[in-house]
Amino acid sequence: MLVMGLDTALKRCSVAILRGDQVLADESVGLERGHAEYLAPMAAAALAKAGVAVRDLDRVGVVIGPGGFTGVRVALSFARGLGVGTGVAVVGVTSLAALAAPVGAPLVAPVIDARRGQVYAGLYGEDGEVLMPPFVTDPEEALKRLKEKAVGAPLALAGSGAALIEPMPPGWAVSGAEDIDAKAVARLAAAAPAPEGPPAPLYLRAPDAKPGRPGLFKGASGA
């Protein structure tokens, strides 16, 4: 299976192309901002390096969040654009599953700093089984929930928010990478069931908007 993996959800912009286990292209750059400028030229370069066209791809795997709202939309709109008129299946992968996948421990808890005193977290088994789907909460509450679920078993923390989980219970260790690897995104997408439609973003947070103030004449009809 020929698969492209895309990620712009956090502080990197990454593109990988894999044929089965063989890595044909693997591009990644660290970024605070500007994902929208980097992604398309990087994808073009990766396709050229791999010697394949978009139409040759069986699937595009894309990180749907949780992460930066704008970052999530960069790769997602690009991936969904690649699917327009090509028949290439677009498969959504969560940022947390992508962080957990390469770790290879029996219990992996990826944690992302979500700012505003909160983290995005989840819990995964060794084969990628989702034990706790992505959630957002403060670090203390995240620790409590993970401890309850782990019931004393050793656990590997991964991701940029791992250091926020303290005090670390005995047997826990930080062992995963801070950043998402686009190759892991591609592999997860390859292993996923065939999608029924394009993936939706996973924000875990409502938009920051307050209901509008009423007018002077609420509900008046001028007619």
Binding site: L39, A40, V54, F78, G81, L82, V84, T86, V88
Partner: peptide, 10 residues
């Protein structure tokens, strides 16, 4: 970004 993807794909 969607337009970039369409340009690349087609």
């Amino acid at each position: 970004t969607t337009a970039k993807a369409i340009a690349l794909a087609h």
